[in-house]
């Protein structure tokens, strides 16, 4: 496949709570190729969300380096990181995290307000993003007027509005019913296939993980298993691997 988009080298992440030092990631190294669809799995406290946050540049490692594209996100200043995030990363949350006082349109427009785009350009990009997630007819609805699945689709539109290369998703189906969850996964798959977005997704859900091309299993801050679905066998082989992982 393509060249590596994400290069994680020997990353350690520690938190200090009171006097106790808690090691969440313990010398982890990992590469993710451009255009890949990776599922991060593991029990609670295994460090998967921490890893996701590090990759997305909203947290910094205690030691080790993380490169995303040409940027070394592990050493950037906070201001530079903020600018970098607004251009290169789209974040999808378990609880959607839409701003309740803004309409779907305005929510998607939020990250674009940080760019120099004209109002008309912003409008076009928002409309495109909402078109991709199939909510062109819900633009003026407020989050509370939407179903959970629709809210998450608006959140995805917000994540792709700036046309980032990397999408990170933290349990994107965790709060949804089976059918809505399925819709979200199909959408993520499409963004990966059709628009070439690299997707890194944290999930508990074997069905969600089965959509990914690669399954990375963490436990106690270290890489435990790294399974790649075979091109030919497709999702079947991966699904089996998922079951094995989940079974442990």
């Amino acid at each position: 496949m393509g060249k590596p988009l994400i290069r994680i080298e020997n990353v350690v992440k520690q938190y200090t709570r009171d006097t106790q030092v808690l090691t969440v990631l313990d010398g982890l190294s990992l590469e993710v190729e451009e255009g890949d669809f990776v599922a991060l799995m593991g029990p609670s406290g295994s460090g998967k969300t921490t890893l996701l946050n590090l990759v997305a540049g909203i947290d910094r490692p205690t030691s080790g380096t993380i490169h995303v594209g040409d940027a070394e996100v592990s050493s950037m200043s906070e201001g530079a990181l903020a600018r970098w995030r607004s251009q290169h990363v789209g974040f999808i949350f378990q609880l959607y995290n839409l701003v309740p006082v803004l309409t779907a349109f305005e929510n998607v427009e939020l990250p674009l307000l940080l760019t120099r785009l004209s109002k008309a350009d912003r409008r076009r990009q928002v409309e495109t993003a909402l078109g991709v997630v199939g909510l062109s007819d819900r633009m003026d609805h407020y989050p509370r007027q939407l179903s959970g699945g629709q809210e998450q689709r608006v959140a995805i539109a917000r994540a792709i509005a700036t046309d980032p290369t990397l999408l990170v998703a933290d349990e994107p189906t965790g709060d949804l019913d089976a059918r809505s969850g399925e819709e979200i996964l199909v959408l993520l798959e499409r963004l990966n296939h059709e628009f070439g977005k690299t997707v890194v997704m944290v999930t508990h859900d074997p069905k969600a993980a089965a959509r990914a091309h690669r399954l990375v299993h963490l436990d106690k801050g270290v890489l435990k298993e790294d399974v790649r679905a075979k091109e030919a066998a497709g999702s079947i082989g991966l699904a089996a691997a998922v079951e094995v992982s989940a079974g442990k």
Binding site: I58, G79, A82, W84, R85, F93, V99, L114
Partner: peptide, 16 residues
């Protein structure tokens, strides 16, 4: 608090 964290995730700077 959460919402502000989300805005910062989207790339909003501290001063914003």
């Amino acid at each position: 608090v959460t919402e502000i964290a989300v805005l910062r995730t989207l790339g909003f700077r501290k001063r914003q």
